[in-house]
C-alpha cells in the first residue's frame, strides 16, 4: 500500500466513528424535538448510542473471549471435541509448563520487589537534590521504550565474544577488565532469568519512581521537620515515617507491576524465546497458539493460568471500588 492509500484508510477508519456519533445525534435531535412525548424515549435512545459502541467492543473483545477461552480449555486443538480435564492433565505433566510456572513465580517475586524498592529509593534521593528532576527523567525514560527495543539494548550489553577477543558487550568488558572469563550470560540456566528480569526492572523502576515521587509530596512537611528536630536520622525517617505513610502507594505499584509481569512476553520472545530454561507462561502460550497449526485447547489452558494469577487482584479492585462508591 502506498502512503497515500494508507493515510486514506486511517482517515476513513477514524471518521466512521466520529460520524456515527454525530449523525445519530442529528437524527435524534430531529425526531426528538417534534413532540414532548418522545422526549423520554429520546433520552434512552441517547444512552444507547453513547454506550453501544463501547459495550459491543467490550463484549466482543473481553467478556465473550474470557468465557470462550475457559470453554476452549476443555476442548481439543481445534475446539470441536470435548476432552474434559485432559488439557490440564497434559499441562501438569509438561516440563515446559512446569518450568514456566517456576519462572513466573521467580519473576513475580523479584521484579515487583526490586522495581518498587529502587523506585522508592531513587524518589527519596532525587527529592533532596537540586538536579533530582533530571535524574528522575533519566530513570523514567525506559518507560517510553518498547520491550523489544529494550531487549536489543540489553542483548547488546550481554553480548559475548570468545575469551581473548575484544568484548563489545558492556557486561563482559567489565568482567574481563576485572580479570574474569567472559560469559554467554543468556545461556546460563537459572541465572539467565535474572538477566532477563533486569530488563523489566530497568523499565518498571521508572513507573514506581514517578508514582512515589507524586506521593512523597503529599507527606506533610511538618511531620518530617518534627522528626528531624528530634534528631532522627534520614534512614530512620525513611523506615519509620515515609514507608508507613506510603503503604497504600506501595501496594498499588506492586499490583500494577505484578499484573505486567504475569503477562511478560516480549522480552522472553525477543531475547531467548524460552530457550535455556527461560520459558514463561505467556511465551509458551504464544508458542502453542501456532505450534503445529495451533492448539487452542492447550493455548487456552495456559491463558487461563495467567488469568488465575490476576483474579485476586481483580477481586480486590472490585471490593475497593464498591467501598468507594458507598461513600
Amino acid at each position: 500500500m502506498t502512503i497515500f492509500s494508507l493515510a486514506l484508510t486511517v482517515l476513513i477508519g477514524i471518521l466512521v466513528f466520529v460520524l456515527f456519533f454525530h449523525i445519530s445525534n442529528i437524527l435524534l435531535d430531529y425526531f426528538g424535538k417534534r413532540s414532548s412525548k418522545i422526549f423520554k424515549l429520546e433520552n434512552s435512545f441517547r444512552v444507547v448510542i453513547f454506550i453501544a459502541p463501547a459495550f459491543i467492543i467490550l463484549f466482543v473483545f473481553i467478556i465473550y473471549p474470557v468465557f470462550e477461552t475457559i470453554r476452549l480449555s476443555f476442548y481439543d486443538k481445534i475446539g470441536r471435541e470435548f476432552l474434559g480435564w485432559s488439557n490440564y492433565a497434559w499441562a501438569i505433566k509438561d516440563p515446559d509448563f512446569r518450568r514456566s510456572i517456576l519462572n513466573n513465580f521467580g519473576w513475580l517475586l523479584i521484579v515487583p520487589t526490586l522495581s518498587t524498592f529502587f523506585g522508592l529509593v531513587i524518589a527519596n534521593l532525587a527529592d533532596r537534590i537540586w538536579w533530582g528532576t533530571i535524574a528522575k527523567s533519566i530513570v523514567f525514560m525506559p518507560m517510553a521504550i518498547s520491550f523489544v527495543g529494550a531487549g536489543v539494548i540489553w542483548k547488546f550489553i550481554y553480548d559475548y565474544r570468545g575469551p581473548g577477543q575484544e568484548q563489545i558487550g558492556l557486561l563482559n568488558a567489565i568482567v574481563v577488565a576485572f580479570g574474569f572469563e567472559p560469559q554467554a550470560w543468556l545461556t546460563i540456566p537459572i541465572w539467565n532469568n535474572l538477566f532477563l528480569m533486569a530488563i523489566m526492572i530497568w523499565i518498571q523502576t521508572g513507573l514506581a519512581l514517578v508514582i512515589f515521587s507524586a506521593a512523597l509530596r503529599s507527606i506533610p512537611s511538618e511531620t518530617l521537620d518534627a522528626a528531624r528536630i528530634d534528631g532522627a536520622s534520614e534512614l530512620k525517617i525513611f523506615w519509620s515515617i515515609i514507608i508507613p505513610y506510603l503503604q497504600q502507594t506501595i501496594l498499588v505499584i506492586w499490583t500494577i507491576i505484578t499484573i505486567l509481569v504475569l503477562k511478560v512476553f516480549d522480552i522472553i520472545y525477543a531475547m531467548t524465546n524460552g530457550q535455556w530454561q527461560t520459558e514463561v507462561l505467556a511465551n509458551l502460550m504464544y508458542d502453542w497458539m501456532f505450534r503445529g497449526g495451533g492448539d487452542s485447547g492447550r493455548g487456552s489452558v495456559l491463558a487461563f493460568c495467567i488469568m488465575i494469577g490476576v483474579i485476586p487482584i481483580l477481586g480486590w479492585n472490585l471490593y475497593q471500588h464498591r467501598k468507594d462508591q458507598k461513600i
Binding site: I62, P65, V66, M285, G299, A303, M307, V310, N317
Partner: peptide, 24 residues
C-alpha cells in the same frame, strides 16, 4: 453500576485471554 464494575474487572484481564477467540 454493573457496567462500571465490568470495566473495572476488565482492566486487569490479561490480553492472553482474548487472543485465541478473537483470532478465530
Amino acid at each position: 453500576d454493573l457496567l462500571l464494575a465490568t470495566v473495572i474487572a476488565a482492566l486487569v484481564v490479561p490480553l492472553q485471554m482474548s487472543l485465541i477467540p478473537i483470532l478465530s
